[in-house]
Design a protein around this nucleic acid. Structure first.
Lengths: 331, 331
DNA sequence: TTGAAAGCGCTAACAA
DNA sequence: TTGTTAGCGCTTTCAA
């Protein structure tokens, strides 16, 4: 029913090997033969079976992508970067959501390997030792995107979260703030930990004592931003500025403040860490560290192609540059 | 190097057929044999090769997902619904972005079929006749999610866009508005066309003449929402209410109005069509038709599993219920 | 309950 | 430049 390479060979009066050659663009085929084969392929509407090809060649030209949650813009943006570069290099992507769950991440790694992917791009908030081990067992290369592995063993693409946070907090410090709140995801998230360290270092360098009450680990959602504002404003000495770990958090904080009659940035200043398109969709618009998610995904995928190709890599832990986009939530 | 079913068979002193049976949960295996095989599998860390299995069984347990753009929240939400149900039924997903481009959509269909997916979920703004034809050539089932095919030939999952729009505009009408603007994506988008028809019908039923100047086809982005506001407010008789095709558009319109000193909803009322999490992240919060993207994706995938399973389907054009979420952008 | 054997559709030596 | 021939790792009759 389905037409196979064998049907084409018969119709064109050549061997399957020759058909295979023309399909794969092998130059060792006489132009006349190629033409004849191509005609038959078109006439029969022959479509090579990638599964059979994968079995024979041990390459599937598909890569696995494990991310926490595609419906979260942060990851979706990265996924787009990954897919664009994958397409550019003629790979397809098997995409799966892990919900940040260690068991799922490990199961997913296993599933993808059983599907014989040629490589994997992974985004994970915390590379636990179990995941570590699973990754080490992989016969194909894996690169971490926007995820840091503290053992520094795996290929990865990130920005310098510590330094970026340091600069963000410094901006607030330069505006005279002494009480700056840190609002970010739970601290088992490795990236958040780096952000916190940057925050602390900036304060310490400015000779400001760290007040644990101002460190508010939240979920990253809009609502938890509002909650963070409430918790912070209830303090005896409330903060006058916020360093938010994401745009949603920042918007939640700003709305929390505004709903209570506070003006941003006149009374409360807020700096975010993400710079998604949301940053421009609030009043005041968000001043934010730009986290180049698309680029992180794209560079990670590009790195993976090199690894799959067994090219020599000078440095497999890539740090891409960051900057701060100045808008109106900071004076 | 990699361990195969053959290695397991040898180690366990059984035939490959028996190993295959235990791996596939076939009941015709003596418990003792099963136990022995399972032990060897564990000891050897045997992982079945899904590609070989796919070639032999002609099933890959993977489905293709073609969507316009994963970095757009609308599609990402649907993708999550698709993936969740796929996972539930033990399918993996090959995800690709089409950017609404007909050529890409057709190429993608072809690529996925060559990878031998067992089925396809597709989201597309316009099912052109070329796509139509490509879909008809598919040996595996395809279901459209949140996409309407005007020929009514394919399985699909949608809400009643016409009726939902009718109700939204009616809500504005009931508040006394006579000049209501329609702002939505370009009208080659089939869904937008239905929305426009709902809008027109509501006006006509209220004996209000349709003013083409109030129909503003935009891109769907925040910026084009702002532009729509500007264009509309520059009219001799500007609209007093807006029906926006997406949350971003609605927010752009609201900010456009607010930046020019207008109050929403006191002076300008806006109703949206989407109800993403953005709807709550503006002031005033958006009153919006809820477009249940996650559900659309989930139901589409569920339908696909039935089709792949060759189950009898009573109705392959599913319309799921919609409602309007009342918030504060409408009085 | 188990095994033997024939493919699934293709690639990749190797030979000619 | 082309063809022959083994596989790739598994499923699936068919027999035993």
């Amino acid at each position: 029913m389905t037409v196979t390479i064998y049907d084409v060979a018969r119709e064109a009066n050549v061997s399957m090997a020759t058909v295979s050659r023309v399909v794969n663009g092998n130059q060792n085929v006489k132009p006349a033969t190629r033409k004849k084969v191509l005609e038959v392929i078109e006439r029969l509407e022959y479509r090579p079976n990638a599964v059979a090809r994968g079995l024979a060649s041990k390459k599937t030209t598909t890569v696995g992508v494990i991310i926490p949650d595609i419906s979260n813009n942060i990851y979706a943006e990265a996924a787009r970067g990954i897919e664009d570069i994958a397409t550019m290099y003629r790979y397809n992507i098997i995409l799966a959501n892990s919900d940040q769950n260690e068991d799922k991440e490990i199961t997913l790694l296993d599933t993808m390997l059983s599907k014989q992917v040629d490589g994997i791009v992974m985004m994970s908030d915390e590379i636990t030792s179990n995941i570590h081990q699973a990754m080490n067992h992989s016969p194909v290369p894996i690169v971490l995107a926007g995820s840091v592995d503290e053992s520094n063993q795996f290929a990865s693409v990130n920005i310098d979260y510590f330094q970026a946070s340091y600069e963000a907090v410094q901006m607030l410090l330069n505006n005279g703030h002494k009480r700056i709140a840190f609002v970010s995801s739970p601290l088992n998230n490795t990236v958040s930990k780096y952000k916190l360290n940057g925050y602390k270092k900036a304060l310490t360098d400015a000779n400001i004592e760290i007040d644990e009450q101002l460190i508010l680990p939240e979920e990253g959602s809009y609502d938890s931003g509002m909650e963070a504002w409430e918790a912070a404003s209830a303090l005896e000495q409330p903060p006058t500025a916020f360093f938010a770990g994401s745009d949603e958090l920042a918007i939640g904080i700003i709305h929390g403040a505004q709903d209570n009659g506070k003006h941003v940035p006149e009374e409360i200043e807020v700096i975010s860490f993400e710079n998604s398109k949301l940053a421009r969709m609030v009043r005041p618009q968000l001043t934010s560290v730009v986290l180049p998610l698309y680029d992180i995904g794209a560079v990670a995928m590009r790195l993976l192609t090199k690894l799959m190709n067994k090219e020599e890599i000078e440095n497999q832990e890539i740090i891409i540059p960051h900057r701060i986009e100045i808008r109106n939530s900071v004076k």
